[in-house]
Amino acid sequence: MLQAKNISKSFGVKRVFQNLNITVKQGEVTVLMGQNGSGKSTCLRSLALLEKIDSGQIMLDGTSVNASDVNMYPKITVVFQQLFLWPHLTNRENITLAVQGTPYQKQLDELIEFLDLKEFIDQYPNQSSLGQKQRVAIARALILNPQYLLLDEITSALDDRQTEVIVEILKDLKKRKIGILLVTHHKVVAKQLADKLVYI
């Protein structure tokens, strides 16, 4: 279980959130919603230990973790809103870079089929559409076998059809016992996926 216990975060005098509690369980989707600028992404970044919190605790499977604890990656991994696929690597290399040196081929083949990547796997990110890049970014996270997947507004720039594809993928990930924290302001997506809904 990934837990944020009473976490608070400020940027200078601006308080982003205070005493926030979030729990992400394996096999469940926790949806984090809120208005623009309400601190959803900062909250996700805090849970991923990419942002230092002012107070509170981040717990992973009952143990308190902090930013210097590098072993928590890739147990927890993140797909960012803007994806940030490395532009000098092909989609295939983007997906496999972190696992090179391990026997990843079988898992890669599964991911190619699961996320329907075959058509553009050997293209560069700038040759792929946004929906395709979205799937590559998800594959890059999934090849790491994460227990918890933190997704920051990954459907925000997608049309309805592409959003539907992503929703189906996330439903499937839920079945694979991955704990998902989804930041979105897409109410329909939240309704379809949420086991738990948190407003900030």
């Binding site: 991923a48 990419l50 590098v70 990656y73 890739p74 927890i76 991994t77 993140v78 960012f80 803007q82 940030f84 490395w86 870079l97 972190a98 890059r140 996270a141 790491l144």
Partner: peptide, 17 residues
Amino acid sequence: PKQYLEVARVSGISAYK
């Protein structure tokens, strides 16, 4: 962009790699 490096970090890629 520091996010390229953050992605590497959350992917568990070593500093050397």
